[in-house]
Every structure is written in structure tokens, then in C-alpha cells.
Design a protein around this nucleic acid. Structure first.
Lengths: 188, 188
DNA sequence: GTTCCAATAGAACGGTTGTTCTATTAGAGA
DNA sequence: TCTCTAATAGAACAACCGTTCTATTGGAAC
């Protein structure tokens, strides 16, 4: 019935790490949010850093699952599937508490490219790119790998823009650019 | 001859804040980097936060000056001026110590959109966008304001992509997309 | 030479950080 | 009932945080 402490900890940490950043979130904050004893944290996780790593893995998993589900639900044809990526962004942006890409934010907070968190961020982006490549292949685009990189770049641009300029309708802007790209590619 | 303490402080703080983030940079770190006494910091700045604000203002000024100078030097015609934005990004990315956009990073570290740092970040992006709009007007593009937003989004996408995936040649990718956009706009 | 100001060194402040230790409690399975 | 496990409360830890205080130094302007 009651949610076990480990799960509550991970949920609380995920919320706070994403919302306020890793450095700005103290262990005390997490304990308060999760309503869990201090010792329980070190019983289930090695350290705060260990908890951060678990947060990133969970975030990667959940975010990509949401993306896949959304595209599957909103894709009539392969071309629409690619455009659905940007509709997904739009709904994501409108959610309360949106605070950009957790993995871009991690890269902003930790400068060493070889830091464990940074490697997890790189893996996340690789997984997303691989998925976009699948969609580009399915849409039978010319140079699908190149197009996938371009689509990914448009998504990154929308996410970053929405974070600093929330009233810019960045997802729709990026969607229009993607549509233009698809037209330019498929026409000749 | 010798650089005054205030300037050394601001330079050291700028380097460390940009490289490692605000939260990860301690006052002690700044003093060590600047070779300045502790009291001197509080003699020239109100607090660490005050120093952060000065860093952001200086960063905004210098970065935009570099951009303007580069475009002025590499722009044969108005269309080339727009593409030069992405050549500027490419040279920026190749500089040692590149660590993304300082203002995106600030937004990642501070969640409150009304925080002073966030407002400074918003102003920076507004200034850059205004400049891009000037270029789009000069190039006599249809719907220049809309095109400027798209160009800005492509730039954001390149910067974010380069941060997490340094081997992706993001600036060139974005430049190609911009060129396609300009062709699509100007042809009909 | 005296005054003035920028800059220095270094201790001290209260508060917070992540982590560990000790001891106790509640509930489920045997 | 006894045992095992998960979870709790709360003190304690050393280290670090941003900031302030006191006292001193060096050089330039007058």
C-alpha cells in the first residue's frame, strides 16, 4: 500500500534534482521531500552522487518511454511520426515544472566531460538519436542519418529556447522547420 | 602595469563561473585564481551574487561584441552575414574551454524564472535576437522576424548539441539548415 | 614627511554540507 | 513467541560555505 522508502527517495530526488539542479539540492531537502529518515538514504544508495546517477538513469528511461508512446499514438504515417516529435515537445513544455533537458542541465553543472554524469548524459542523447534515425529510415528519407542529426538539433534548439524564452512557441517553430526540411528532402 | 585587483577578480570569477558553474565555484576558488585577498572581493563587490551578476553583464557584452565583429569581418552580402553567425559558432566551439552558453547554463542552475540572473539571461537572448532580426531585415527576407526566431533556434540547437555531443559538427549542421531555410525563403 | 587609499593577511563567525554512528521501533514470516 | 528486516530518530562528525572583523602594508599624491 504505502510506497517503499527507496522509491519515495528516488522520486523526491528526481523532482528536486531536475527542478533545482544537483548542487542546489541538499540531502536534507531530499529527506524532507521524501519524508524518509536520513539513514534510509544511505541504506539504499551509496551516496548523494549514487542517487544522482539513479535519477539520470530513471529520467532517461521514463523520458524516452513517453516519447515513444506519444509518437506511436500520434503517427499516421512515417512523415507524421517525425513531426510528432515536436508535438511531444510542445506538450512537454506546457507541463508545470518544465525546466529544460535534465541532461543538458547536468552538462551545465559538471564541466568534466568524462564525469560519470556526463557519460550518462551522452548515452541518453545517443539513444534518442538512434530512435530518430529509425524514424528517418522508416520515412525513407535520403541520407536518413544526416536528417536525423538535423532533427535532433532542431529538438535541442526548441528545448533550450523554451527554457530561457518561454513565450516563444519554440516547439511550433521547430516543427515548421522540420516540415520544411522534410519537404525539401522528399520533393526532388 | 599590474592589472588592478577588481579586474583580476572579475576575470577569475568569469573563467570559473563559466567553466564550472556558479554553485560549484567557491569564493575561495576565485581568490586563489585571482591571487587577491579575501577582503578585496567584498571591497569591490557586494557579495558573491553581485560578482555573478557582473560576470553575466560582462559575458553578454563581450560575447555580442565578438559576434558583431566576426559577422562584420566575414559578411560579403546580407545573406552571407546570416550564415556567418554559424561560422562564428564553429570557431567558438573550437576554442579550448568551451562550455556551452553561459546563460543557458545559468538557467539550468537557477530555477526561479524571476531570479535576477534569469532576467539577465533573458535580456541577453533578447539582444542577440534583435541583432539577428536586423540581419534578416537587411537581407530583405520575407517575414524577417519569423526567420530571425528560426535562425536563433538553430543557433541554440547547435550550442546545446556541441556541449553534450562534441564530435557532431553541430555548427556546420546548423549552417546547412540555415542555408536551406534561406533558399526556401528567397526562391519563390 | 604626512596623508590617504587600495590592498593585504589571517583569524573568526554562524550556518550548512555530506556522511557516519548509535539506538530504537514496527511489522512480517517462521 | 521469536527472529529477521526495513525503517526510524537524532546526535555527532569533520569539512566547507559566504561573510565580517581586525590589523597591517605599500605606494602614490600633496
Amino acid at each position: 500500500m504505502t510506497i517503499p522508502a527507496k522509491e519515495r527517495l528516488l522520486n523526491a530526488a528526481s523532482k528536486l534534482f531536475y527542478q533545482n539542479g544537483v548542487h542546489a539540492t541538499s540531502v536534507e531537502d531530499i529527506l524532507d521531500e521524501a519524508l524518509v529518515a536520513r539513514q534510509s538514504l544511505y541504506l539504499h544508495f551509496q551516496s548523494k552522487d549514487g542517487l544522482v546517477a539513479e535519477f539520470l538513469k530513471l529520467r532517461d528511461q521514463r523520458w524516452r518511454e513517453s516519447l515513444h508512446a506519444f509518437v506511436k499514438a500520434h503517427a499516421g504515417n512515417p512523415r507524421q511520426a517525425i513531426l510528432a516529435l515536436f508535438d511531444f515537445l510542445q506538450t512537454w513544455f506546457s507541463e508545470p515544472g518544465f525546466h529544460g533537458c535534465a541532461f543538458i542541465n547536468i552538462a551545465a553543472e559538471f564541466s568534466d566531460p568524462n564525469h560519470h554524469f556526463r557519460l550518462l548524459a551522452g548515452e541518453h542523447k545517443q539513444h534518442v538519436l538512434r530512435y530518430i534515425k529509425q524514424l528517418c529510415h522508416a520515412a525513407q528519407l535520403a541520407n536518413p542519418e544526416t536528417q536525423a542529426c538535423r532533427i535532433a538539433l532542431l529538438m535541442e534548439g526548441a528545448i533550450a529556447t523554451e527554457l530561457v524564452t518561454p513565450d516563444s512557441d519554440a516547439a511550433a517553430q521547430a516543427r515548421q522547420l522540420a516540415a520544411m526540411l522534410l519537404d525539401t528532402i522528399t520533393l526532388p
